[in-house]
C-alpha cells in the first residue's frame, strides 16, 4: 500500500497541513501475533490481529482520545507507536521521521520526545526504588542533570504533579493509587516530552480520584503544551480531556472526529451503541433515550473478517458489509461504515 492510497486523516477541516508534518503520524499500523494452541491431539495455528490498519495524526498540544472495548487493540497501538512491541507493518512518524520498528538503542533520542504513562499504578513502578529515584531515572539515563541539580529537578517535578516533595525517599507501596499515578506522570514529564501516550491512566483509580488526575493532566497540558494520546474504555472520561476522539473496534478505527462532532452526532453504529450505554444522571432523560443493545457474539481478534468486523453485531448491516471492508474516509469527521459515510474500500 503506497502513500497515495493510505487512509490517514490529517487535522483537516482547519486547512491543509501538508506543509509541516504533524507531531505524530500513524499510518496503516498493523500488529499481528501468530500463535499455536489446542490440545495435544488437536493443534491449530492462527493469527491474532491486535491492530489491523490504524491511521491518525496528532498535532502539537492537542489530545487525541482513543476509546474502545477491552481487547480492541488500543494498548497495543500505543505500545507499537513507541516500539515496545514491533509493528508488523505500517508506519509511525514523529515530526516526519519514521520510527516504526527501530531497536531500543535507535529509539533513544525519540524517548525524549515521546513518553508513556501506564495503566497499573501498582505495577508500573519498581517496588524497590524510592520515588525520587524513579522520577529521576530518566534524567540519569539521558544525562540531563546530576547530583544537586537532579534532586532539585525531581523536587520541582513532584510539586508540579501535586506530590509533597518531602516524600522523596519513600517507596511506591507507601502511596495511594492516585499518588502513584502522579509519580508515573512526573516520571514521564522528566524529559520534557512533546507527546505523552497515556494507556488507560485512570482506569484503575476510584472515580473521585479519576477526576483529580484528569484535571491535573489538562492543567499540565495548558502549562507545558504537551500533547496526549489518551486511551480509555470510558467515553465519559475521554469527553472531558480530548480535542479529537477515535473509536476503535477489533483493531480498526470505526470513527474519528472532534469531540463535539462525535458526541453530538455519532456516525458509526458502534459509536452510537457506546454512547447510549453511558449513564446519565437525570432519570427523565435516561428513561426517554433510546438504548442500543448489541446482539451477536463478542468479537474475537483471531477470527478473520473479510468485510466489516462489526457486521455480526451491527443493527443496520447490509450484504455489502460482510464482503467489502470499509476504510476510513479522508475528512475531519469520518466513519468506516458503508451506510453512514463514504469510505474507500480497503
Amino acid at each position: 500500500m503506497n502513500a497515495a492510497q493510505t487512509t490517514h486523516t490529517s487535522t483537516e477541516g482547519s486547512g491543509s497541513t501538508t506543509a509541516e508534518p504533524p507531531l505524530l503520524r500513524v499510518n496503516d499500523l498493523k500488529v499481528h501475533f501468530p500463535f499455536r494452541r489446542g490440545s495435544l491431539f488437536n493443534p491449530e495455528q492462527g493469527l491474532i490481529r491486535a491492530v489491523d490498519g490504524v491511521s491518525f495524526d496528532i498535532a502539537k498540544g492537542e489530545t487525541l482520545g482513543l476509546v474502545g472495548e477491552s481487547g480492541c487493540g488500543k494498548s497495543t497501538t500505543a505500545r507499537a507507536i513507541i516500539n515496545l512491541v514491533h509493528p508488523t507493518s505500517g508506519d509511525v512518524q514523529v515530526d516526519g521521521k519514521s520510527i516504526a520498528g527501530l531497536s531500543d538503542k535507535e529509539m533513544l533520542p525519540y524517548r525524549r520526545r515521546v513518553q508513556m504513562v501506564f495503566q497499573d499504578p501498582f505495577a508500573s513502578l519498581n517496588p524497590r526504588m524510592t520515588v525520587g529515584g524513579i522520577i529521576g531515572e530518566p534524567l540519569t539515563v539521558h544525562k540531563l542533570a546530576s547530583g544537586k541539580d537532579r534532586q532539585l529537578e525531581v523536587l520541582r517535578l513532584m510539586e508540579l504533579v501535586g506530590l509533597n516533595p518531602r516524600f522523596l525517599n519513600r517507596y511506591p507501596h507507601e502511596f495511594s493509587g492516585g499518588q502513584r499515578q502522579r509519580i508515573g506522570i512526573a516520571r514521564a514529564l522528566a524529559v520534557q516530552p512533546d507527546l505523552i501516550l497515556c494507556d488507560e491512566p485512570v482506569s484503575a483509580l476510584d472515580v473521585s480520584i479519576q477526576a483529580q488526575i484528569i484535571n491535573l493532566m489538562m492543567d499540565l497540558q495548558q502549562r507545558l503544551g504537551v500533547a496526549y494520546l489518551f486511551i480509555a474504555h470510558d467515553l465519559a472520561v475521554v469527553r472531558h480531556i480530548a480535542t479529537r476522539v477515535g473509536v476503535m473496534y477489533l483493531g480498526r478505527i470505526a470513527e474519528l472526529g472532534t469531540a463535539e462532532e462525535l458526541y453530538a452526532d455519532p456516525k458509526h453504529p458502534y459509536t452510537e451503541a457506546l454512547l447510549s450505554a453511558v449513564p446519565v444522571p437525570d432519570p427523565t432523560i435516561a428513561a426517554n433515550r433510546r438504548r442500543i443493545v448489541l446482539q451477536g457474539e463478542v468479537p474475537s481478534p483471531d477470527k478473520h473478517y473479510p468485510g466489516c468486523s462489526f457486521a455480526d453485531r451491527c443493527p443496520i448491516v447490509v450484504d455489502r458489509c460482510r464482503t467489502d471492508r470499509p476504510g476510513l474516509p479522508d475528512r475531519s469527521h469520518a466513519a468506516a461504515c458503508w451506510e453512514r459515510d463514504d469510505p474507500p474500500e480497503v
Partner: peptide, 26 residues
C-alpha cells in the same frame, strides 16, 4: 512482562541498567 520493566525501556534505560537496577533486586 511487568510494567515497571516496560517503563524502564520506555524511559530509554539500557539493557545493563534494566538487568542490574530493575531485575536483579527483584
Amino acid at each position: 512482562q511487568e510494567q515497571f520493566v516496560e517503563s524502564a525501556r520506555t524511559i530509554g534505560a539500557s539493557p545493563m541498567r534494566i538487568v542490574f537496577r530493575h531485575l536483579v533486586p527483584n
